[in-house]
């Protein structure tokens, strides 16, 4: 049953994004504990030094194409 709960929550977020309605879970992590029957929301922030979306990140299409994600998912650290 748990995949149903989470998958339907995902579908709801998609609909909100398409319609431009409400507050999608951007910067928030929603967790559901099925044994406790509790939902919690944790705030999560951006990392200014993020190697993908940070101010100095140099991520580009050729880097994605050339990387073997099955072997390593590490990106070069920004600024290097």
């Amino acid at each position: 049953m748990l995949p149903g709960v989470i998958g339907v929550l995902q579908a709801t977020e998609v609909i909100k994004l398409i319609l431009g309605q409400g507050d999608p879970l951007v910067g928030r992590l929603l967790t559901f504990d099925a044994l406790e029957s509790t939902f919690r929301t944790l705030k999560v922030g951006r990392d200014p030094e993020c190697p993908a979306c940070g101010a100095e990140a140099k991520l580009d299409a050729s880097q994605v194409r050339d990387m073997d994600y099955q072997v390593s998912c590490e990106l070069p650290i920004a600024g290097d």
């Binding site: 929550l9 559901f32 504990d33």
Partner: peptide, 9 residues
């Protein structure tokens, strides 16, 4: 028995 959902925009 735990699930998580978030949106990366």
């Amino acid at each position: 028995f735990e699930g998580q959902v978030t949106v990366y925009k």
